[in-house]
Structure formats: structure tokens, C-alpha cells
């Protein structure tokens, strides 16, 4: 029991360290990049009084060390500054967008795993078969796809040519009740499938090769020798071990997934953080950009910590290591 507690405590400690790192990197980037941070923070259209007020709010007249302390303090209180474009707190801008990004990334991850595991199992149980060749080729191509290209083509064919699905946004106005949920799900399909297509390749390829290795291990040979049906050997014995590297992959891919979400949301005008980043870029709304990055880093870190903990559940050895 103490081992589990220590394992969990260590993972939480690492998550906190990563959050601190992300925040510090953002702070240093803002201060060290070419140009006066005052210029980056205050827009040229502001009145001198407003500019001064903003500068003192950011504490830009203090020494760097004091600025850093104040910056951390503000962050701890959830204060990410004021959006230039909308003149409302950045947290307000981002919090109305965060649920959509979470919905999109989480559902695409679930879909990838739900499609990827059976596909990987099928490929691994019939190596060099037709499906195996197909998965290998598809996996390599899938890994090389440019997210917006996939989104644009799905949008063009399924949305604009065949009129099967809505082409943008996250819901239609004026729809309430149960119909609203259906509407949201419909709007989710294209962005979610785009994100799944670019992720699927690496999961299937990883699962395939680890599962082929696992099926050659002694314990699988023994399980077959004692007369266990092949289906049970694959799904109960080999897959449990083969899933470990796949779980690691989720952690490694999370950052990539978030990047993909930014691009996908831009293609589909999906009102998540990614779309917010795109709008902030076009409006040069630096506080929103900065806040969005901190929030995304936080999301990735928390999700990463959860994957680590799941790994501990799957593999008892990790807890003691």
C-alpha cells in the first residue's frame, strides 16, 4: 500500500515540476525574445495612460526576479491577464473554449484506441497477410499526413459534396434538449475522425510489433500448449503485455495530439482553444496566446500523469521500480 502511495506521490511531484517548467519557459520566452516586452504586451493603439497601467499591472518596471515571482503569484490565483481584443480576463476567454478542446481530443483518443487495438490485433495475428500489409502501408502513410490536409478533404467530400455532416462550428444555434446532444455529436464527427486518422498509424504499428513479440514468448507458447483457444491467448495473455508500450505512446503523443487539435479546430472553425490560438495570432492578442499555452501544457501534464498512473495499474513492476 505504501508503495502505491509513494508511486502516486512521485508522479504528482513530477507533474508539478513539469507545470513549473512550462510556466517558466513561457515567462522567459516572453522576456527574452527580441523586442521590448512592454511593446509586446501593450498594443500601439492604446492611450499612454492605459499603457502605463498595463505595464505596472504586469510589473514590467520591476527587476526580472521580482517580475518572475509576481508572475507565478498571479498564475497561482488563476490570473492570466486581460485579453487585448475583448477586454475581458483571459481565463474567461479560455474557459469557455476548454470544454470543446477536451471533448475533441478525448473523443479522438478514445476512437483511436477503439479502432487501433482491434486493427493491431488482427494484423499481428495474421502476420504477412493482406490485412497486415495493408495496416503497415496505411500506418506509414497515416503517420506522414498533414492534419489540415486530412481535415480539408473530409470537409470537402463528406461535408460539401455529399452534405452528410456539418462543415464547421460545434453546434447549430436554436437547437435544444436531446437534439442538441445529437447536433454536437454530428459536428464532432469530422474533426474527431481527422485527428484519429493522423494518430492511428503509430498506435497500430506499435501494437502490432509488440503483440507479435509477445505471441512468441514462452508464456504464450505454454498457454497454447495447454490447449487454450487462440483467441483467449491473444486477448487475455499477449495483449495485456503488448498494451504497455501503447500506453507509453499515449503519453508521448499527447503533445502532438494537442498540436493536431489546434490545426483541426482551425480547419473546422471549432470553438476550442486551438481556434482561440488562431484568432489570438491574427489579433496579436498576446495574453490570450500565453494563457492558452499554459492551459494546454497543464492539460497535457495532467493527462500524462493519468496515463502514468494507468501504467502502474497495468504493470505492477512499475509501482516498485
Amino acid at each position: 500500500m505504501t508503495q502505491v502511495v509513494r508511486f502516486t506521490a512521485r508522479r504528482i511531484g513530477r507533474a508539478l515540476l513539469t507545470v513549473w517548467f512550462a510556466v517558466t519557459v513561457t515567462f522567459l520566452l516572453l522576456r527574452l525574445l527580441p523586442g521590448d516586452p512592454a511593446l509586446a504586451v501593450a498594443s500601439p493603439n492604446m492611450t499612454p495612460a492605459a499603457r502605463l497601467e498595463l505595464l505596472s499591472q504586469y510589473g514590467l518596471d520591476d527587476p526580472l526576479f521580482v517580475q518572475y515571482g509576481k508572475y507565478l503569484w498571479q498564475l497561482l490565483h488563476g490570473n492570466l491577464g486581460i485579453s487585448f481584443a475583448r477586454q475581458v480576463p483571459v481565463t474567461e476567454v479560455l474557459m469557455e473554449r476548454l470544454p470543446w478542446t477536451l471533448l475533441l481530443t478525448f473523443s479522438s483518443l478514445l476512437l483511436t484506441v477503439a479502432v487501433g487495438i482491434p486493427l493491431g490485433v488482427l494484423a499481428a495475428t495474421r502476420p504477412r497477410g493482406f490485412l497486415d500489409r495493408f495496416t503497415q502501408v496505411g500506418g506509414v502513410i497515416g503517420q506522414s499526413l498533414f492534419v489540415p490536409s486530412v481535415g480539408i478533404f473530409l470537409l470537402f467530400f463528406l461535408g460539401l459534396q455529399l452534405h452528410l455532416l456539418p462543415i464547421g462550428g460545434s453546434y447549430s444555434p436554436g437547437v435544444y434538449g436531446a437534439a442538441w446532444y445529437l447536433d454536437v455529436a454530428k459536428h464532432l464527427v469530422l474533426p474527431c475522425v481527422s485527428l484519429m486518422l493522423v494518430q492511428l498509424g503509430s498506435y497500430v504499428l506499435t501494437l502490432r510489433s509488440t503483440l507479435i513479440d509477445a505471441l512468441g514468448e514462452d508464456y504464450c507458447v505454454l498457454a497454447r500448449a495447454k490447449g487454450m483457444p487462440n483467441r483467449k491467448v491473444v486477448w487475455k495473455h499477449a495483449l495485456r503485455n503488448a498494451l504497455l508500450p501503447t500506453t507509453t505512446l499515449i503519453g508521448l503523443q499527447l503533445g502532438y495530439l494537442v498540436g493536431g487539435a489546434v490545426l483541426t479546430e482551425t480547419v473546422f472553425a471549432y470553438p476550442g482553444i486551438g481556434r482561440g490560438i488562431y484568432e489570438a495570432v491574427t489579433q496579436l492578442d498576446f495574453p490570450v496566446l500565453q494563457g492558452a499555452f499554459v492551459l494546454l501544457a497543464l492539460t497535457v501534464v495532467i493527462a500524462n500523469m493519468l496515463t502514468d498512473l494507468a501504467y502502474g495499474v497495468l504493470d505492477p513492476r512499475v509501482r516498485t521500480a
Binding site: 515540476l17 513539469t18 517548467f21 512550462a22 519557459v25 513561457t26 520566452l29 516572453l30 525574445l33 527580441p34 523586442g35 509586446a40 503519453g251 508521448l252 499527447l254 503533445g255 502532438y256 494537442v258 498540436g259 493536431g260 489546434v262 490545426l263 490560438i277 489570438a280 495570432v281 496579436l284 498576446f286 496566446l289 500565453q290 492558452a292 499555452f293 494546454l296 501544457a297 497535457v300 501534464v301 500524462n304
Partner: peptide, 19 residues
């Protein structure tokens, strides 16, 4: 490890927009 756990594209966007 710390660098790998940061979302890279948003970070690139932030820097490219600032610079």
C-alpha cells in the same frame, strides 16, 4: 523529459507570433 512533455506546436506558435 520535461521538454518532451510540453505541447510543441502551441509553443512554436507563441514564439513565432512574438518574434
Amino acid at each position: 523529459d520535461l521538454c518532451l512533455s510540453l505541447p510543441v506546436l502551441p509553443l512554436m506558435i507563441l514564439v513565432a507570433a512574438l518574434a
